[in-house]
Design a protein around this nucleic acid. Structure first.
Lengths: 124, 124
DNA sequence: TTTTTAATGCGACATTGTTGCAATAATATA
DNA sequence: TATATTATTGCAACAATGTCGCATTAAAAA
């Protein structure tokens, strides 16, 4: 199944590239120039995730956030870094430091989801 | 406002103490002897959190999980440890190792939410 | 230009979690 | 013990998030 480029996919990808933060569907929808259906946004984002272009973080608010992959090559698609979510302004940004986690014997890692919330530098 | 002990609060607290894992409202509801309303369960759990008896983790499935505090004294109520959620059996357990995170200047930590999902030892 | 089929919009739905309000029951008071 | 106080509960309603089926639209291939 080959992917097609549409207005929606292009706009959403550009937005994610331009913004230096992870965004949930609502933030994305409100920042798009054209109106895109909610279901479509989710489908586009999930497709991006499947393709390894974008990664998904679940915030401690229970919402899904999406961010453009910066340091991921096609082979190593790792996101073992923390994200910081500001409870004041809502911004979700990547914290650079990689977290190295050693799991107990017999445990297999599928997904790393490290999130710290609090107040960011701008809102202190 | 003083807390009251009710059948619900006692049962839920006992359950959380007995089980060695974090549970969401559904798991709790199904394991209770008596039937307790969903809203009540949430209210009880959130009260426990306020009192520092229980801590809350948001899974990468977006659900809230609650676990009885083991190593928290009344003064230091820290949960800077990771949780592991098995995507097969649904179990959410604490990983012992504390994660030490250094935030950038001007950032204030309110909540640490570290979660790794995958398959646990039993399900491998 | 025509054909193929991936992507979209719409509506409906399941699920999670919260809240207002009247009824209940745990604790304090007499 | 009996009564008063008010924290807690159950119920219903609600908002929000995310998913899915299906008919329609529009990329890309032929």
């Amino acid at each position: 199944m080959k992917r097609r480029q549409t207005h929606s996919t292009q706009e959403i990808l550009e937005l994610l590239k331009a913004e230096n933060q992870a965004m949930n569907h609502e933030m994305i929808q409100s920042k798009l120039d054209s109106q895109v259906n909610r279901a479509t946004i989710y489908r586009v984002l999930n497709r991006f995730c499947e393709d390894g272009i974008v990664h998904k973080i679940v915030g401690d608010d229970g919402k899904q956030y999406f961010a453009f992959c910066l340091n991921c090559t096609q082979k190593t698609h790792n996101h073992n870094h923390f994200h910081f979510r500001c409870t004041q302004c809502g911004k979700v940004e990547c914290l650079e430091k990689e977290a190295s986690i050693s799991l107990p014997e017999g445990y297999v890692l599928e997904n790393f989801n490290g999130l710290i919330s609090g107040t960011c530098n701008d809102c202190t």
